[in-house]
Nucleic acid binder design. Sequence first.
RNA 1: GCGGACGUGGUGGAACCGGUAGACACACGGGACUUAAAAUCCCGAGACGGCAACGUCGUGAGGGUUCGAGUCCCUCCGUCCGCACCA
Length: 878
Amino acid sequence: MAKERYNAPAREKHWQAVWDAHRGSHAAGNDNREGPKCYVLEMFPYPSGRIHMGHVRNYTMGDVFARYKRARGFNVLHPMGWDAFGMPAENAAMQNKTHPGTWTYANIETMKGQLKSMGLALDWDREIATCSPDYYRHQQKLFLDLLDKGLAYRRSAKVNWDPVDMTVLANEQVIDGRGWRSGALVEQRELTQWFFKITHYAEELLDALSTLDKWPEKVRLMQANWIGRSEGLLVRWALDKATAPKGQSELQVYTTRPDTLFGASFLAVAADHPLAKAAAEKNPALAEFCEECRRMGTSVADLETAEKKGFDTGIRAVHPLDPEWTLPVYVANFVLMDYGTGAIFACPSGDQRDLDFARKYDLPVVPVILPPGKDKDTFEIGTEAYDGDGTMINSRFLDGLDTKAAFEDVASRLEKAKLGGKPVGERKVNFRLRDWGISRQRYWGCPIPIIHCETCGVVPVPAKDLPVRLPDDANFDKPGNPLERHPTWKHVDCPTCGSKARRETDTMDTFVDSSWYYARFTNPHAEVPLDKDALAYWLPVDQYIGGIEHAILHLLYSRFFFRAISDAGHAAKNLREPFAALFTQGMVVHESYCRRETDGRPIWIEPALVRFEGDGASRRAIHRDTGETLEIGEITKMSKSKKNVVDPDDIIAHYGADCARWFMLSDSPPERDVIWTDEGIAAAGRFVQRVWRVVDDLADRAAPAGTPRPDNFSPDAAQLRKLLHKTLDAAGRNIEGLRFNVAVAQLYEVTNAIQQASGKAGDGLDWALREAAEILVQLIAPMMPHLAEECWARLGYNTLVSNQPWPAADPGLLVDDTVTVAVQVNGKRRDELTIARTASNEDVEAAALQLESVQRALDGRKPKKVIVVPQRIVNVVG
RNA sequence: GCGGACGUGGUGGAACCGGUAGACACACGGGACUUAAAAUCCCGAGACGGCAACGUCGUGAGGGUUCGAGUCCCUCCGUCCGCACCA
């Protein structure tokens, strides 16, 4: 029987058309908000041009989960859209003389086609492109409402400025102090920028992390570190009048270790601190030093290796616990202006930086904390500071207290002490988190809806005038902001007084776009930014899936932004966390191949041009055309630069989407990287054919659909039924828990079993085989939906398997009458024992002791003790 | 430097709450079918010893807890990731 092979690419197109016609894979419309819901979302892509294997993996996982939940009776929302604003479109515009919008929408068309070819059950009626005025007009409204609430504001801030591209760069775009594109030395510039007040929510964002029990611990930890809460004390130090610059009488520092105050040996301020500036006015050498510190600020590499440097201002400060004691005030390059107060007191024995500094400038080092187990008389600080807890020494009235008690003692004393009528000390919780600067001097982003008027100042664009649209006729010939140099766009009349004014030409950081798209998806056609009823039903996202690279920025911004817009009245205030469960999937990696230039530089060769000889240690890569032996490089993330990419289109055209999906789910746990191999995809392809063969074969051989269940099953048939029902139960739980690789292994197992059984005969076997085939098809349906439809039809149904409810496992088949338990002697496995599941411990013990292998292992000794763990193990101790 | 994760056959990995380590897949070896190949099907396989039954060893290394440890605890080694002058 020369059966035809399953022609995946052709049949997949067929079933996609059928689904489109039935709208079978659809979330319910906006009106249907009945029953339990499940909102499944994968991080939407940037429309860079084509999808890559990373997308295939990400969207397959979400699709399997969404299809499974739908079969389980949930009302599923599974939308898709485009993170469509951003720099690449503008760069492309410069290079190809095409408008960023043209480029972006062309990419969206291509990628949408690719996603459709994957057979994803997405609700395309909800498609969002963030670059569309239909989307960004609502974002502008949200901005205005945040402004109204005081959650958006403008201030002057330092930015990384690329003088060639004439744009602000994000920190990660500055490499070794140079712009990543232009290679120009990046300058620190003071610019007036728009900010979102994320720090207002610092405490809440940190505290609420503990409620996100379906997020990876790793991500929660990263966010907690990023927010960086610390408890400390603000301490005001009086400046010695004789040495202080005019108008300066005190210096406020922030410390988390007031207990070490008696170990203080100097104070230090940042180069931009007002006191440094005041002191520099009359001290050119100091002014020069401050200038040097500022220049150094840009380069990350410099920062890491920079030596601690300082400059004595000549100012002296009075110790808050001893009016007789004055300390020098330095300007130091390692003190940050934007953390705490930009000024510190230094305790060299307790802080490595302070110690390095003290050693360099020969300042006193007094140990004040005695580590546990050390001797007070011999303890010394050498080249390493001790920043742990211990017992206070050399600290007058604090001596003998532990670190915590000393902290409390000093804090309460300083709270009571007064300087110029105000308390010297004030307890203060500090955060590392800074406000979110959202201004970008670029064209392809959401315009900030603000008008600057000479008389009225900063004027919000009235809501009726939204959206503020990007002009279509911008010019991309030169670097810099096309909005700024557009001849007419920025010139408008002030909405308040009517006089000549100009538009804000900055656009928003694209992270703003992605901070609320998941909420907009719940009703993307609403006339207001967010439809509260839709939000109340659909949010939070029940399963969010994306890359770990967004662990902090996107996910923290979204958590903030959703709270902010809720507080501005756009969502119910009890809804705080947008993503109930988060899953971070691993990358798709691939071997890389190269030959070397004479100078050792690698020339990367694409996998399609490589063939292999030998295996194991003698495996060699050979260039198909030239025959030369190539170097086998690292297994790394697929990237254009290493040419180790495999195009999903090629795979889908050759093997079909189901095969690609199956491979992406196989083998590797989803949170880990998966290695793309030709053997792996070929194995998946073989399985696709095998499933088709098995089902095709059984469709003729097994009992017809709807045959009543027979009363008797042969042992083979009974065994097959047990395995299938157990797998049905287990695989369902594994899909639920996103352990796709385990579910895949179980499906291989049942397929093997069905194949074995189909060669046999016996009572009820034909019926059991049909049941097995149907369960198999339903189990693979979320993963390989096209193949499943094909098989379902072959089994005689004219319904869609994607519309079938998840089959129910027969509870009676999930437990066995007999169990096999391992028998150990002194912890070593010696035998196994098959016995009735309900056998008493005594019976099990007796049966175990009678085993010949046990007797032999005991070697005549009497068993001292027998441990029986029901249905698992017997351990004879002798 | 700080924080975190991980380490299991030739390879990717499985192993629920501490209870038969190596499921499933890849690669490999043998066989069937074939003029031949592909495809497919069957068998083998952690290492060492043995014809075999079986025995010994075995989850990065060393120690500990336990009747029993891949799993828990301590020390060390290695790999990867995040943060990095945050006072």
